[in-house]
Amino acid sequence: MRFLLDAEQKEFGRTLDRMLTASGTPQAVRAWARGEYGPGLALWQRVADAGVFGLAAPEAYGGFGPLPAELAVAFVELGRHCVPGPLAETVAATVLLAHLGGTGPAREWVPRVCAGRARVTLTLPGGGPYALDAEAADAVFTVTGSGLLSLSPGHGPVRPSVDPARRPARPAGGGTLLASGPAVRAAAALAADWAAFATAAQALGAGLALLDRTVAYARRRTQFGAPIGSFQAVKHRLADAFTGLEFARPLVFGAAVALAAGSPTARAEVAAAKAASCDAAYTAARTALQVHGAIGYTAEYDLSLWIGKARALRSAWGGPAECRARALELFAQGSG
């Protein structure tokens, strides 16, 4: 057993971190929130060039995967840097189409998605009715509960999200039917697991960013003649936020190992990771807001970008109750 990232995986995370730090993501996020996608799409291309969108797709379709541990490393960084766009949806689309295989939509879309030349989003059964960032996408896929995979002809109005950089819209009905049947349902279920998994890693990254920024603020901000981080009431909230994130991380990588192995418990492992990391990220968000005080409650201050995301990611790809119901299966086989 070696339940640790290797040197190459760690370096991959550091490389992404450096690249995103240099990219000025908050400006791209704010532009994206206004529906100005240019800076965000430039960032998107850099993420694609780093290989991130090929991590769930097999080599046959232009990817490098499936490499869920690397995907988790990448999505922690995407979350940490608040990168906008249909990130988990892109992962899910590559899994869905590649799993269906063949020479049709998989051949047409997956290599271009991996290379960053096409942006896609989707809806899946059980994943909510909204296609995230449909307006910025070249294709919107839908899968119905009865197993019909279609290319949607468009989308409805963009709805506001508590994370302004997320722009959900309902796919338009009808469109081109690409595939149907039990194979579509099975591929869609797997794709939804990957979407939840990517979202868990992204939430963990968002939580880590919220904690880092808030610790820095608590060291700097002085009241009553002392840095507020020296007060136990503040320190202990930050300690709890840290502990929550610290113990969400092994669940995210445990889910990665289960997905890589095709384990029968993968869905439960993903659900546990999603529940824990979204809880930890939201706790970090509440702590961040409270410790910053009024300045944290402004849209102008960049902290708001992560606070909204931590809330929105909880509801995406399986809310807390749904994830908990699935996670029960982890220890369902009795003792031993």
């Binding site: 057993m1 070696r2 339940f3 640790l4 610290e246 113990f247 969400a248 092994p250 669940l251 990588f253 445990g254 492992e269 546990a272 529940a275 824990a276 807390p320 109750a321 908990r324 119901a325 996670a327 029960l328 982890l330 220890f331």
Partner: peptide, 22 residues
């Protein structure tokens, strides 16, 4: 949900231990 939460946390600690042992 409380039962599930306990399961999730126990699994988190188990995985944390494996990480430390590695």
């Amino acid at each position: 949900d409380r039962v599930a939460d306990a399961v999730i946390r126990a699994r988190a600690y188990e995985l944390y231990g494996y990480g430390r042992a590695s």
